[in-house]
Nucleic acid binder design. Structure first.
Length: 116
DNA sequence: GCCTTGACAATTC
DNA sequence: AGAATTGCCAAGG
């Protein structure tokens, strides 16, 4: 499955009335800390519930008319806000994290990229 | 290959 | 509360 398809799959998994953050989408797609890839995915195709993707803390990242439309769409789905932010404790959606294959001969530790 | 571009995120001041 | 900084990673020029 392509990277793009993975992202799209995660985004499509968010049900009406729920929202997910850019960072969570990336993590679920197998790219923790690469929230910007979610933006890339959102702009790389149609047929996505784009309005259900919000920034950390339930903030709406889109500015201007687009942001207003997003809020309107969410409101129509029953999403509630606390000030300008979505109430994540109520509407936050947690997708099933994409699992990494554990090959018989390879250990994840062999692929460590950073941290420590 | 190197540089720039994003609807970002976490940290720090 | 807001700005600056750094990390992030696929794509396109």
């Amino acid at each position: 499955m392509s990277t793009l398809a993975s992202f799209r799959h995660i985004i499509r998994s968010v049900p009406r009335g729920k929202v997910i953050t850019y960072g969570q989408v990336a993590e679920a797609a197998g790219f923790p800390r690469a929230a910007r890839l979610t933006v890339w995915a959102l702009n790389s195709g149609e047929d996505l519930p784009w309005h259900r993707v919000v920034a950390a803390g339930g903030r709406i990242a889109l500015r201007g008319p687009d942001g207003e439309e997003q809020r309107l769409r969410l409101t129509m789905e029953g999403v509630t806000f606390r000030g300008s932010r979505v109430r994540m404790d109520v509407h936050g959606w947690t997708p099933r994290i994409r699992e990494r294959r554990r090959g018989t001969s390879v250990r994840t530790s062999a692929f460590r990229t950073r941290d420590s």
